[in-house]
């Protein structure tokens, strides 16, 4: 059973001078426990598709179903709080919060008590292979790899089973990139997450169970 189903989705945005169909009549499905890669050149529409999958935008045509529920009928903020979370290329941690505060944030947002959120946060930081001393460090004091692993820990803190990653290795060296991909892979295969990675790195895409290729807003398997 697919956890996410994209059904004939298009997304058009209008700028001052032109109208662009970034995603054009795309249909695909995503199942639990698998890692997907969406590859394509810059401007192929993959980041727009991720934005739609994350519920940050709504398709101008078609529908995305989350466990058979149309996304357009869902509380999309709640969807991002409880079901799907996103990891970005540039980590996007709160710069003035410590690693632990960053990881605890989505839990506190869901109403979990600060003390409990910190306890779980420490466990999540450990689960992505980071030492406890990292907990009290600000993002600027950490390496890129450490920041991205904290970002993954924060994504896990939402408690959802869908993890969307936009070029997660783009700002990392090879070693750290491999570590992050391994973590994402283990999340899908061992913990049942649906991991969807947007990448133009074929090395990363090769690790995925299923690869979708995007070109001019359209998708091919």
């Amino acid at each position: 059973m697919s956890i996410l189903a994209v059904n004939e989705v298009s997304y058009t945005y209008k700028s001052k001078y032109q109208t662009v169909e970034a995603v054009s009549n795309v249909s695909c499905t995503f199942e639990a426990g698998k890692m997907y890669a969406i590859v394509g050149h810059s401007g192929s529409g993959k980041s727009t598709l991720l934005s739609l999958l994350a519920g940050l935008d709504l398709p101008t045509k078609g529908e995305i179903y989350v466990e058979d529920q149309p996304m357009s009928k869902l509380d999309r903020d709640r969807y991002r709080r409880e079901t799907a979370s996103v990891v970005y290329q540039s980590f996007n941690l709160f710069p003035l919060l410590t690693a632990l505060e960053n990881v605890a944030y989505p839990m506190e947002l869901r109403g979990i008590a600060a003390k409990e959120a910190r306890k779980t946060g420490k466990e999540l930081i450990a689960s992505v292979g980071l030492e406890e001393r990292i907990c009290n460090q600000l993002p600027l004091m950490m390496s890129g790899g450490q920041q991205q692993r904290v970002a993954v820990a924060r994504a896990l803190a939402s408690g959802g089973k869908i993890l969307l990653a936009d070029e997660p290795t783009g700002n990392l060296d090879t070693v750290n990139g491999e570590i992050v991909v391994e973590i994402l892979k283990s999340l899908s295969h061992e913990r049942g997450y649906t991991v969807i990675i947007i990448t133009h790195d074929m090395g990363v895409a090769e690790q995925a169970d299923i690869v979708y290729t995007m070109k001019d807003g359209k998708i091919t398997v």
Binding site: L56, D77, R80, R81, N92, F94, R110, R154, S158
Partner: peptide, 11 residues
């Protein structure tokens, strides 16, 4: 950027 992160996390 901070506000965007908040939104991304479900605020």
């Amino acid at each position: 950027n901070e506000f965007a992160i908040m939104r991304s996390l479900g605020t």
